[in-house]
Design a protein around this nucleic acid. Structure first.
Length: 766
DNA sequence: TTGTGATGACTTTTT
DNA sequence: GTCATCACAA
């Protein structure tokens, strides 16, 4: 089992049962270490398959883990707690829904459902204020939950903040009434359940003797707390991650979890996997040199014995169209030389950049495949059917009610629905519960819809799930509606695909022949219960089934796994995707495009704390995708937002040492002046220059400005400063400019550190 | 209920 | 340039 592993990998796999952190660089065999560790733990008898808990971020990663594990060991992986944070929390909440304060058939809202629920809430609350756009409210609620905060925990320093907390509370109340939870709630509820209910917590703490976490750098505050709570005092956590590949801060990921875990739990038990099995020398050296510009790192240097390989090629074109054309010509040449197209990837920072590339590829008839399109369970026709199914499972799901009450149209207009919503508010019921209170013709059409749902629910007691879905498609009128629509053919095919997906799900989960709404005696998802202390937990610690019908289980599945989002599979095609989407993948030849200031690094990112460092990590991820051949391209002008913009060469190009670069087109002299659209940067400088106080960290590090460095403005060598954590010190060196400015500071007690002025909170001592 | 034109936003994304 | 949203007319 251990053969073929290098010494560091072996050390990681065979670590003793204590908290440990594995810093796994790109291409260092991370997944292999993780799965081998699991297999090793089981094989050496340290833990049974059911004493393991392994958590990932994506379903794909979880599946991969299980597949590899079964290849290593002849065990049945069914029922093992290997899954995503959300999947595992769902499992916990289903098993203990009563203690968690949830209805048995609670539904899960995806982001789109959540947004429409929020819009409904805002309407009901009479909020018609542009200071509270639904998207902002959604972001606020989600980020609060990611930090483990309830409405009462939010700061209420001003009326706006109090208002937001109030909206969060109203949203919670609405979810409660409707029996739905959003993604964040899944985690927070599960966390609170474990925290509050000692018997349940202790049971799971006893049960899980080993916890393993993948992509630890992507965990948010709440996920980290959830893990440590579940670990309790005795269960070791084996965390694998790479702080240099942390690219999801914008959705709540907190890289700080790694440093915290190391310092508080895994001190002295950090293993670095630095041997890279993917890329050749120039590529790795370029990546190392680039990422060294980041100040806050745990530190790591990749190396390879695969040889130097080729330097990175750099190509500059006059426009985005010419950049795309160059890519197409180059790729055709590669394919002609015998490179398989699917081993070639074109990466870009933002989705909008795919357009000219697609255009050029299409015109040249080069087969390509774009990642990140719409996903199966997010298609509107699929969501419509799912809404009917949810109403069958839980008629109080107002989000679903609103979605399909008039789709296909059955003469129920906005006026009627408003009336219904008013009655529901008055009676304190769901929309379904308010039907009887709506008078007249409007009430009659609502009643007809309610009857339809009731009848379908009745069918669900005899038909199996695929049959039920076919039945719903027909009797809801969706079938006729799409048949009448000229472009409805594809949609009908997708609905047939949904029936097939349900059939596959039913077979997979052992629900064959069972009526869709029937709760089976031996449920698919085994949870277990604390040893016989409480009758609610069942039978003395034996795995007890989670009460879920095929319908309920399928709806959870549809929410938690949105399905494939890859376009035309199969064909040998060039791969087009964002850098984010490329994480975890590798290709023989990689093209990183649009290396221009404002695009990569993206101008918006410079507004965020640590934004530039995250962009640099993104570039690091992009570079390390390539095995043998890496090409960086840029365009002098680019169509963006309907305007032609002229960008400067990305600073990332200048951060890679010349010896690793080979300019294919002549290297242009950098233009002195910033293009007009970077005016925001200049404004930023004024902002914080004018700020009185003594904090020299700009409110936002958007301080890029032609020819002026932060150091010249505000710091001089020899300046005395104070830092929150490191204490007092003296500036000994300055480097970089603008948002990238760094100061080397000799602290009296904490040693010498290099800090990014855009990030570090420094106070100047007079 | 449905269609039209004006308006404004526009990085990345899994669950 | 493109897409979503929204107010208002037919």
């Amino acid at each position: 089992m251990l053969e073929g592993l290098n010494p560091q990998q072996q050390a990681a796999v065979t670590l003793p049962a204590e908290h440990a952190l594995v810093l796994a660089g790109a291409g260092s065999g991370k997944t292999r270490v993780l799965t081998t560790r699991m297999a090793w733990l089981i094989q050496t008898g340290q833990v049974g398959p059911h004493g393991l808990l392994a958590v990932t971020f994506t379903n794909k990663a979880a599946r991969e883990m299980l597949t590899r594990l079964s290849a290593l060991l002849p065990i049945n992986t069914r029922g093992m707690w290997v899954g995503t944070f959300h999947g595992l929390c769902n499992r916990l909440l289903r098993a203990h829904h009563r203690e968690a304060g949830l209805p048995q058939a609670f539904q899960i809202l995806d982001s789109a459902d959540q947004l429409s629920a929020i819009k409904r809430m805002l309407k009901a609350a009479g909020i018609d204020d542009e200071r509270f756009p639904p998207r902002d409210v959604q972001r606020m609620i989600n980020s609060a939950k990611e930090d483990g905060l309830r409405p009462g925990d939010l700061d209420a320093r001003d009326s706006h903040a109090r208002r937001l907390a109030d909206l969060y509370q109203r949203y919670q109340d609405q979810c409660e009434r409707e029996g739905v939870v959003d993604f964040g709630e899944l985690l927070l509820r599960a966390y609170e359940l474990l925290q509050r209910e000692a018997p349940i917590r202790e049971h799971y703490q006893r049960r899980f003797q080993q916890i393993l976490v993948d992509e630890f750098q992507d965990t948010n505050v709440l996920q980290y707390r959830w893990l440590m709570l579940l670990a309790g005092a005795h269960t070791p956590v084996f965390a694998v991650g790479d702080d240099d590949q942390s690219i999801y801060a914008f959705r709540g990921a907190n890289v700080g979890n790694m440093a915290d875990f190391e310092q508080r739990h895994a001190r002295g038990r950090v293993i670095r996997l630095e041997q890279n099995y993917r890329s050749q020398g120039h590529i790795l050296d370029a990546a190392n040199a680039l990422i060294a510009h980041n100040a806050n790192r745990l530190g790591k240097n990749l190396w390879t014995d695969a040889g130097e390989g080729e330097p990175l090629r750099v190509v500059e074109q006059a426009s985005d169209a010419l950049e795309a054309q160059w890519l197409v010509d180059e790729i055709r040449a590669l394919v002609r030389e015998g490179h398989p197209a699917h081993e070639i990837a074109i990466l870009y920072r933002s989705n909008a950049q795919s357009r000219p590339i697609e255009h050029a590829m299409f015109s040249a008839r080069v087969p390509y495949r774009v990642y990140g399109g719409q996903r199966f369970f997010e298609r509107q026709e699929v969501k419509h059917v799912l809404a009917y199914l949810r109403l069958i499972d839980n008629p109080n799901d107002d989000t679903s009610w609103m979605r399909v009450v008039n789709f296909p149209t059955r003469g129920i207009g906005a006026r009627t629905l408003e009336q219904q919503a008013d009655m529901a508010a008055q009676q304190g019921t769901s929309l379904a519960g308010a039907v009887a209170f709506v008078p007249g013709k409007a009430g009659a059409s609502l009643a007809r819809f309610a009857t339809l749902i009731r009848e379908l629910a009745e069918e669900a007691r005899t038909l199996d799930l695929p049959e039920l879905i076919g039945h719903v498609v027909h009797h809801s009128g969706l079938e006729a509606h799409y048949r009448a629509d000229r472009e409805g053919q594809d949609r009908l095919e997708n609905l047939q695909e949904l029936v097939n997906a349900a059939a596959a799900f039913v077979a997979e989960e052992g629900f064959q022949g069972l009526p869709a709404a029937r709760i089976p005696e031996t449920a698919a998802i085994a949870a277990d219960a604390p040893a016989g202390t409480d009758p609610a937990f069942g039978d003395g610690g034996q795995p007890s089934p989670v009460v879920m019908s095929p319908l309920g289980a399928f709806l959870s599945h549809a929410s938690l796994e949105a399905g494939d989002n890859q376009a035309q599979a199969g064909e040998d095609a060039v791969q087009l995707m964002t850098v984010h989407a490329a994480k975890g993948l590798e290709f023989d030849a990689v093209f990183i495009t649009g290396l221009e200031e404002g695009l990569f690094p993206h101008e918006n990112s410079l507004l965020d704390q640590g934004g530039l460092e995250e962009e640099r990590r993104l570039m690091y991820v992009a570079i390390t995708r390539a095995r043998r051949r890496l090409t960086l391209t840029l365009a002098q002008s680019r169509m963006l937002h309907g305007q032609t913009r002229y960008g400067m060469r990305s600073r990332f190009l200048d951060e890679i040492p010349e010896e690793h670069l080979k300019w294919i087109t002549p290297r242009q002299r950098q233009v002195a002046a910033r293009p007009p659209w970077s005016g925001a940067f200049r404004r930023g400088l004024g902002d914080w220059q004018g700020e009185a106080g003594s904090s020299f960290a700009p409110r936002s590090p958007r301080t890029q400005s032609a020819g002026v460095t932060v150091g010249e403005q505000c710091f001089r060598i020899g300046t005395g400063v104070r830092h929150g954590r490191f204490g007092e010190g003296t500036v000994v060196a300055l480097s970089g400019s603008g948002a990238d400015a760094q100061a080397r500071i000799e602290f009296r007690d904490a040693g010498t550190k290099t800090l990014a002025l855009g990030v570090a909170k420094l106070e100047v001592l007079d």
